[in-house]
């Protein structure tokens, strides 16, 4: 869907999060030079058209104790990948699942899923369950646990920029110590 100028600007404004005052949409309207009603309507359009797939509290999962974060990658035939991907996505402990392009000569894997857990033992057991349940014993795969989180912030969607500029250091948000713990 083609986004309107106002939709772009709202997306850009939402990168900083909803202001924590009593009338947050009115505050945003003020910033964007429009009305509260227009901001709410525009936001609801983005949600209804599924441009926004989730609107709410975006938590720092590592700070909240989800330290065992595994990216599991599989090399699955392109024909079979969609069905296996859908079955994988339905498993309760899978938080994200998608098919991606391979990198020739470097990275043969095309089906990805994420499992976020509190400890590695549990996550490893869930991965074994996933492989057994979907009969993926013979599919080449890898499990990449995360070690350090250097950055977690909002995507830079919104109005296109003429060029990429290196930001001033202040624009890079510091990650709280608890988020940077080795998982």
């Amino acid at each position: 869907m083609e986004l309107s100028n106002l939709q772009h600007r709202l997306i850009e404004r939402l990168r900083d999060g909803l202001p924590l005052g009593k009338h947050p949409y009115a505050d945003i309207a003020n910033d964007l030079g429009t009305t509260e009603g227009t901001v709410i309507e525009t936001l609801e359009q983005l949600i209804a058209h599924k441009v926004i797939n989730r609107f709410g509290m975006i938590i720092r999962h590592r700070a909240l104790g989800y330290q065992a974060n595994a990216m599991c990658v599989f090399d699955i035939g392109d024909d079979a990948a969609p069905d296996i991907g859908k079955a994988m996505a339905a498993l309760p402990y899978v938080t994200l699942c998608y098919r991606r392009e391979r990198v020739a000569g470097v990275w043969p894997y095309n089906l990805y899923c994420m499992i976020h857990g509190r400890d590695r033992l549990t996550v490893r057991a869930q991965i074994r369950h996933l492989i057994a349940r979907l009969e993926l014993h013979d599919a080449p795969h890898k499990v990449l646990f995360s070690k350090q989180c250097f950055t977690q912030r909002a995507g830079k969607y919104g109005a296109p920029r003429a060029s990429v500029s290196l930001p001033a250091p202040t624009e890079t948000r510091a990650i709280p110590d608890e988020v940077r713990e080795i998982s």
């Binding site: 986004l3 999060g17 909803l18 441009v51 926004i52 797939n53 609107f55 938590i59 720092r60 969607y157």
Partner: peptide
Amino acid sequence: DLKDKGYLDRIGATYATGRAG
């Protein structure tokens, strides 16, 4: 308080890939 303690990044949106940019 959740934000001050680093548990909350923001109240905001996540986007469907390919729809917002």
